[in-house]
């Protein structure tokens, strides 16, 4: 028996390709956009831009710290640098460079981070960063975005090109359902209510938005009507949308491919605790590192798939 999904897909694609295609399109629109990459051009899907605009693209070699500094410097003179590498090397490895040269200096740098989270898969925990959203959202001036599929990642890439200020854009490697529209307008900081519900709100970000869509259908079969809200922008957080939804449903679940510590759920908890202390359950990695495996296996083992969102929703409901 198949689920009655409110959103469906006919094609799967990696979100990094959404970034690569959006980056190329943004580059065609604005000659000030430049690219940098630390020896992962193919993995980041930055090759098409490099081919079309070789003079505006800078291979930095395996030297991420330098890349972040270069990007900060290029903004002086009006360039809009998109600096790409794996999320692990784009954050933890260069935290101080981002903090001083980009965030504190309020530079118009776009940090483009692929292969984030467990769904990186077989490469294992050294590369599966699960702390990046937390590190980036703590930085003043930084905007943090984590889109859910190919189309949303492409739209987000085009949106950040027109946004003035430092941005962290997180995306991933696995082939993933394309379930949002190709022509969507991406508004930074504006949550998207994808499915209306009255019993419990599921706030999801990144790849787990799809799992939330599946979880909603599973809950509905049991007579539970969940509201699904796509939080593509972790910072600034759309507090209004969060409070409005929880006012109606009375309880919530956060779902993210990230540590529970410091993630989206933490941000939602802050908002709720200040304005409307309601039950909140967390779907995320619980203070551990990942390991090698397929994306599906890893999401299951670490408790991040639709079944786990369903369980969390029921726990939240029981606490109402």
């Amino acid at each position: 028996m198949s689920l009655d999904l409110k959103f469906t897909y006919t094609e799967k694609k990696d979100t990094r390709s959404g970034f690569g295609d959006g980056f190329l399109e943004a580059g065609r629109k604005n000659p000030n956009i430049v690219g940098l990459c630390a020896d992962l051009i193919g993995s980041l899907k930055m090759g098409a831009f490099q081919k079309e605009f070789p003079d505006r693209f800078f291979q930095t070699g395996i030297a991420e710290a330098n890349m972040i500094g270069l990007a900060a410097g290029m903004t002086i003179g009006g360039k809009i640098p998109f600096a790409g590498t794996f999320a692990n090397f784009a954050t933890g490895r260069v935290y101080d460079q981002i903090r001083q040269s980009v965030a504190y200096s309020d530079k118009n740098v776009k940090i483009c981070a692929s292969h984030a989270g467990l769904t990186l898969g077989e490469d294992g925990a050294t590369h599966q960063i699960l702390e990046d959203l937390g590190m980036m959202k703590m930085l003043p001036h930084m905007t943090v975005i984590n889109p859910c599929d190919y189309n949303q990642t492409k739209a987000a890439t085009l949106a950040i090109a027109e946004h003035e200020g430092p941005v962290y854009l997180r995306f991933g490697r696995p082939s993933w359902p394309i379930f949002t529209p190709a022509d969507q307008k991406f508004e930074i900081g504006k949550a998207w209510k994808m499915i209306d519900g009255k019993d419990v709100t599921i706030f999801a970000t990144g790849h787990l938005v799809w799992e939330a869509v599946v979880a909603e259908a599973m809950l509905r079969e049991e007579g539970i009507h969940a509201e699904v809200i796509n939080i593509h922008t972790i910072k600034p957080l759309d507090e209004e949308a969060i409070l409005e939804s929880v006012k109606k449903t009375g309880c919530a679940v956060s779902a993210e491919e990230h540590q529970i510590n410091g993630g989206l759920g933490d941000s939602i908890a802050q908002t709720l605790s200040r304005h409307n202390p309601a039950p909140l359950e967390y779907v995320g990695v619980n203070d551990s590192f990942g390991e090698s495996g397929t994306p599906t296996q890893l999401l299951e083992k670490y408790g991040l798939n639709a079944e786990n969102i369903v369980k969390a929703a029921k726990r939240a409901l029981a606490r109402k």
């Binding site: 710290a65 500094g69 410097g73 360039k79």
Partner: peptide, 14 residues
């Protein structure tokens, strides 16, 4: 340790 990278970026922007 960060300044040289920034200066290089500014030089390339020029």
């Amino acid at each position: 340790g960060q300044g040289l990278s920034v200066a290089l970026g500014a030089a390339q922007a020029k």
